[in-house]
Each structure stands twice: as structure tokens, then as C-alpha cells.
């Protein structure tokens, strides 16, 4: 692709994405939001969040990738969750979890 094409691509996708982002704020305001719709959107949000977690843990590109790094990541998430159930401090648990994974990789990656 030429340099100009890359700039045009950025503008095109930017415009298309912007229209997707704003359209619900334009037409969905005309709708009444029932309890079921709110529940549906809550489930959708939780499924998206959980999907992002599993994708980050188990996938590389578009393939499931299970190796020793996957194990470090799972241990890190598990440690963070255990710590969070006791301390309820989000930032502390987050940094501890990442720290555990980095430490494991440093110790066992040679």
C-alpha cells in the first residue's frame, strides 16, 4: 500500500468506527429501556470482560496457545484473586499479580 493509502485507511476506519460509536446515542434514546434490556446488557458486559481475560491468557493471534507462559499468567491471576478476597485493594492485588508472573518468568525462563 502507498503512504497515502495508509492515511486514507486510517480516516475511513476512523469515520466508520465513529458512526458505530455514536449511533446508539442517537437512535437508542428514542427507546424505553426495560429491565430485561438492562439485564441483557449486564450479561453482555460480563461476557465481554471474561472473554478478554480468557483471550489474553490462552490465545496468541487467532490460535489457542498453551505453554509455560500461560501457566505463569494463570498463576498470576489466581494469586491476585486470592489476595483480593482478603485485602480488597485493587491496585495492590493488580501489581502483586503482575509481579508474581514476572518473578516466575525471571526464575524459570533461564
Amino acid at each position: 500500500m502507498t503512504d497515502a493509502s495508509w492515511y486514507l485507511a486510517a480516516l475511513g476506519v476512523g469515520l466508520g468506527s465513529y458512526l458505530l460509536r455514536i449511533s446508539p446515542f442517537i437512535w437508542a434514546r428514542c427507546l424505553q429501556w426495560g429491565k430485561d434490556n438492562i439485564a441483557f446488557l449486564t450479561y453482555v458486559s460480563l461476557a465481554i470482560a471474561a472473554g478478554i481475560v480468557s483471550k489474553a491468557l490462552f490465545m496468541r493471534g487467532s490460535q489457542i496457545h498453551l505453554d509455560v507462559d500461560t501457566l505463569y499468567k494463570c498463576v498470576a491471576v489466581f494469586c491476585a484473586l486470592i489476595l483480593y478476597s482478603r485485602k480488597r485493594n485493587l491496585l495492590l492485588c493488580l501489581i502483586s499479580g503482575v509481579g508474581v508472573a514476572v518473578l516466575l518468568k525471571m526464575l524459570f525462563a533461564g
Binding site: T42, Y43, L46, A47, A50, L57, A80, L81, Y84
Partner: peptide
Amino acid sequence: PIYFSLLISSDVRKRSELIAAGLGF
């Protein structure tokens, strides 16, 4: 991923929400 795991664990209130998160995962 760790941040979202913690958010989910602190946010899930009902069994149906846990099922939604589990299926998504």
C-alpha cells in the same frame, strides 16, 4: 486480564451473572 478478573470477581452479584461471565470465559 488481571484487572478485569478482579473487576468481575468484585462485581458479580447473582448466579446468572456468574454464568454469563463463565460462558464468556
